[in-house]
Write a protein that binds this DNA or RNA. Structure first.
Length: 175
DNA sequence: CGTCTTTGACCTGCGC
DNA sequence: GCGCAGGTCAAAGACG
């Protein structure tokens, strides 16, 4: 539970980053919403062995898939999913305590992955933010968390873990 | 007793 | 049309 490693949101559009949970807001608040800044910071922090984190343009991949499907037929636009934000986190635990309350509503075995994918929904009334949590087969220490939707309410409880993470992030900041 | 997890069934979209 | 895979539902049970 306390072995969270660094993570941060991947978003091709900084202005949309605050649709993601509080972690994104917190992150962007001191990184100036600069994707270059993120990369610089990443390359810098990745030198710190165990505390490094990894990222991939999950959102962009998802968006591209959306674009593909939407280009096939306009009627599919309706069925397009909300924008999703994927995190890759090095953690021994699957579920990160991000301060919101989540209810698990499903779990599925995923093809080509020996770990199941878990589905969570925000329990706050009227807030239907969802997240999926999945551990990578390639690297069992990596947990991929995908957020979908925007919280319509303040954070349920601030977490010490997050404070700790953010403090770590500050200390890695290269400028 | 309220809240949450588990888990099998069901639904839907997509490729063949 | 069929089968597969991903996503969701909902009943049952566990837990504090």
């Amino acid at each position: 539970m306390e072995n969270y490693q660094m993570f941060f949101p991947i978003s091709s559009s900084p202005s949309e980053a605050n649709m993601a949970p509080n972690s994104c807001q917190a992150f962007n608040s001191f990184h100036g919403d600069s994707s270059n800044g993120l990369l610089d910071w990443k390359s810098s922090s990745s030198r710190t062995a165990e505390n490094c984190f990894i990222q991939k343009p999950e959102v962009e991949e998802i968006d591209n898939q959306m674009m593909k499907s939407s280009s096939v037929g306009k009627q599919k636009e309706k069925k397009m999913r909300k924008q999703r934000y994927a995190f890759e986190t090095r953690s021994q635990v699957d579920v990160l305590d991000d301060g919101y309350r989540w209810r698990k509503y499903g779990q599925k075995a995923v093809k080509d992955n020996k770990f199941p994918r878990s589905y969570y929904r925000c329990t706050h009334q009227g807030c239907n933010v969802k997240k999926q949590v999945q551990r990578l087969t390639k690297d069992e220490s990596v947990v991929v968390t995908t957020y979908e939707g925007m919280h319509t309410h303040p954070i349920h409880k601030p977490t010490d873990n997050f404070e700790h993470i953010l403090n770590q992030m500050h200390s890695y900041k290269p400028f």
